[in-house]
Amino acid sequence: MRFIECENITRIYGSGESAVQAVEGMSFGIDPGEFVAVMGESGSGKSTLLSILGAMNTPTQGRYRVDDIDVYALGPEQRADFRSEYLGFVFQSFHLIPYLSVLENVMLPLAAKALPRSGKKALAMEALSRMGMEKKAKRLPHEISGGEMERTAIARAIVNQPPILLADEPTGNLDSRNAKVVMELFGQLHQGGTTIIMVTHSAGCAQCAQRVLRVSDGRLANGEHLRLAAHG
């Protein structure tokens, strides 16, 4: 049994003649602490795959298990709890809340948790400190640079200390210098034991990963399903 298991995952949008098969029969596994890159052309299905891994897009067929939890067998509220406990998201366009400060954005995943305010703040400051952003904690998102926004987004993703980090084109909106900084941070998180699944177009970024899943026309192009079968 692997930490993350996808078994024959299929996702079809629409129905009848207008049905679009975004993901077709994908099966693969990921071990704890592994750093996996997902690469593919635009429209190949990699973003759909990431949303399924993010417990936000119910597959039409197949099973997705994390830590022996059948994620899509959970109800909507339990799946929200699963996201809170297991997942951290880094979005391509950051998705920082514009009216909250950098610190408050990082505290966002803790907002609904029954922790004292001081405890939440300490956790957020620790995450910001790991990203080198502690001095800009009081700034609003529009007052910081793109690279800083990305680092804030990563701090928000790890403030819960989730075992899995999902990243969608984390360097897509960054220059090369900031992209390098972000990948170094991902490397540190990986060293710390976080399982990272990163969708990227960049071959350079993909080189930082231990393994690359290539997606083409909704299918895994590099026979990962065979490797999963071998593990089983």
Binding site: G54, M56, P76, E77, A80, D81, R83, S84, E85, L87, F89, F91, H95, I97, L108, P109, A111, A112, R156, N160
Partner: peptide, 9 residues
Amino acid sequence: VFRAVGFRR
């Protein structure tokens, strides 16, 4: 974003 970071409905 709220839902993605684990907010319940």
